[in-house]
Simulated assay, not measured.
Amino acid sequence: MEPTGVPARELSDEELERQGTHAHATRNWVFLHGTAEQFAHHTERMLELEKEYLRRHPKRTWQGSAEAGGEVDEATRLRTALRGLVTQIESVLAEADPLPDKGSAAGGGGATGARGSSAGVAALLREVADAPGGRLHRLELHQAARRAGLPRADVAQLYRSDPPLLAADGADRVLTDAGKEWLAHRS
């Protein structure tokens, strides 16, 4: 099969992300309704885009989050994927929980959530503070939150607390002045 389109290595970061997002959005349709040739081409292109994205941004995906920075074995990949699914399911269940509020990651007196911890919040905020320019790409922040053991719902609270501890600046996430102050009181 002859590849078509601009090689992934030649795409800008924005175009690589756009094409990767589009490939994932159209995957189900191609799987269910496309021809065998369309499916094969789609698979090849999607893998090419993913491989290039991982090469450029290894810390933004679970595949590139190995502590040693190298390749991870299949069992580690599966274990990490399963942990990610469990975290996502727990977040969905927590959002649908009809029980009274059990606290939030950033609000109240302790900055601990139903599953999160003050230590986890501190580890995440410290990682943002220690990043180059005090900023992390949003996907790198999600990886840092996973390492810190913070569910997505608790991370979301860091943006919604009064005052917020984290803020979005385009695709980057930055520590607010309140976040710096919160972190300074726990160091």
Rank of each mutant, 00 (worst) to 15 (best):
M1P: 09
M1S: 12
E2I: 11
P3D: 15
P7W: 12
R9L: 13
E14M: 05
E17M: 11
Q19F: 11
T21Y: 06
A25M: 12
N28Y: 03
F31E: 01
F31I: 02
F31D: 08
G34S: 06
G34R: 04
T35F: 14
A40W: 14
K51D: 00
K51S: 04
L54A: 05
H57P: 00
W62G: 07
Q63T: 00
E71G: 05
L82R: 09
G84W: 13
G84S: 09
L85N: 12
V86M: 14
V92I: 12
E95N: 04
D97H: 05
L99A: 05
L99I: 01
A106F: 03
G113S: 10
R115T: 03
S117M: 10
A119P: 04
G120I: 05
A123I: 05
L124F: 11
R126Y: 13
V128P: 02
D130E: 13
D130M: 06
D130Y: 02
A131H: 11
A131G: 07
G133M: 04
Q143N: 01
A145K: 06
R146M: 14
R147G: 06
L150C: 06
A153Q: 04
S161I: 02
P163Q: 11
L165V: 06
L166N: 06
D169E: 14
D169M: 15
R173P: 00
V174K: 03
L175H: 03
D177K: 05
H185M: 11
